[in-house]
Design a protein around this nucleic acid. Structure first.
Lengths: 229, 229
DNA sequence: CCAAAAGTGTTTCACTTACACCCATGA
DNA sequence: TCATGGGTGTAAGTGAAACACTTTTGG
């Protein structure tokens, strides 16, 4: 018979804040709850961790099952464990923070789970449990992170213009950036590869397309940079 | 009869990496284990979370009980939850990161728990479970944090000299700093209050004592600063 | 030819860095 | 008087911030 420790055990869940960018809005993926507690309320995707999976695996599995989402980036955010955060039982949740490329994902996520939806972060509804607090923490983390790591690229299509990239940063940081300074700084990082292609089907001068250099991107992700702007 | 969720539950523990500074060495508090698994091996202080306490409360309680330590600073670090990190059962642990003022604490901690000891981080033994990984993560966090928040002061006595403060930073960052630049920068932050007192009992010119301004300190802790040096 | 966005340089200012000598004190 | 650490200023370089006009293209 297997050994087990003789201590009372709380429930353990994972919850994931999934961010995507859509036409200048920062969006978050929410799920409408089907059962009590908080039945009918919107909440972060998540669920109970299985005993045979790690926390990271649990987070990915829940996203797949609940929202059909494949994430481009996933990191642990914080663990929330106040005694009364779930009215029915003691539940500790490990919160995660994820980024997805919305241009590839929207159709799937929307069709797959009829009760999943993307909300602009600015006008998300009041969430179940302490999920408002979790969302707030995730937003703070995203804003901090984008200043010293190139995470933001996970949110864009593979080929993009510098203006798209700048809009992404402006959306996340919630303030306008200077065009010339932005381009100077981002190009000096030697992170982008200029392509021979340009935008199509725009009613004005077409912009040059870029893609990021995966090697350089990887290096900067590890060692960090300073992106104050 | 109270409601409970019908999912298998892992064990949940907290473990704390407690740092202190002692004569130019960065030290960490370890506990020698009295039971299996890893009996006799050194490990981080910690233990099972009770169902009627939050994670933060659990961390503080364990420190009190196991090591008689009152911490000056405590923050959650990361949650470790791979399946096999404890050979006997599924145990998820929420790791914390703490700073104590060693000049006030050593006698107590040493006497209180005969199996607790301070080790220089550089030559700590191999630890039980995945505690080496946790310690490594805590050290990285401390080094990162000290650059943009005034956490380091928790490690010093109330009144201190600028040289002591500089040594503290040098110890944490593991590299020498320029004396004049250090003083210029730290004083410009308007974080320190110059006292009318000077060092006692030194065999050379006595240095001026400083204390930090709690209001200003609080503000900088929240909003951050840049301390690259 | 007009609307719309693309693209491009320079100046100013603040901050970081490097660096060496005299001072005060107790032994 | 000597050994020990305390205390101080300047110059050069780097990076951030502010700022406006010309170019290209499609409609």
């Amino acid at each position: 018979m297997p050994f087990t420790y003789e201590y009372p055990r709380p429930c353990l869940t994972v919850d994931v804040v999934v961010f995507g960018i859509d036409e200048g809005d920062l969006k978050v993926l929410l799920i409408q709850r089907g059962q009590a507690p908080f039945e009918g309320r919107w909440a972060l995707p998540g669920g109970f961790v299985r005993l045979d999976e790690s926390l990271d695996q649990g987070a990915e599995r829940e996203l797949r099952e609940e929202a059909g989402v494949k994430v481009a980036y996933l990191e642990q955010l914080y663990t929330f464990g106040t005694v009364d955060r779930d009215p029915r039982d003691r539940v500790v949740t490990v919160a995660y923070f994820a980024l997805v490329n919305l241009s590839e994902h929207r159709p799937q996520a929307a069709s797959d789970a009829r009760n999943a939806a993307w909300f602009a972060v600015a006008d998300a509804p009041t969430l179940a449990f302490d999920h408002d607090k979790i969302l707030e923490a995730a937003l703070a983390r995203l804003q901090a992170k984008v200043r010293y790591q190139p995470v933001g690229f996970e949110l864009l299509p593979e080929k993009f213009t510098l203006t798209q990239l700048q809009k992404l940063y402006e959306t996340i940081l919630e303030r306008p950036l200077d065009k010339r300074n932005f381009r100077k700084k981002i190009l000096k990082m030697d992170l982008l590869k200029e392509l021979d292609e340009i935008e199509k089907d725009v009613a004005h001068r077409a912009a040059r397309l870029y893609r990021f250099d995966p090697k350089r991107y990887e290096r900067l992700t590890r060692k960090g940079f300073n992106f104050e702007l």
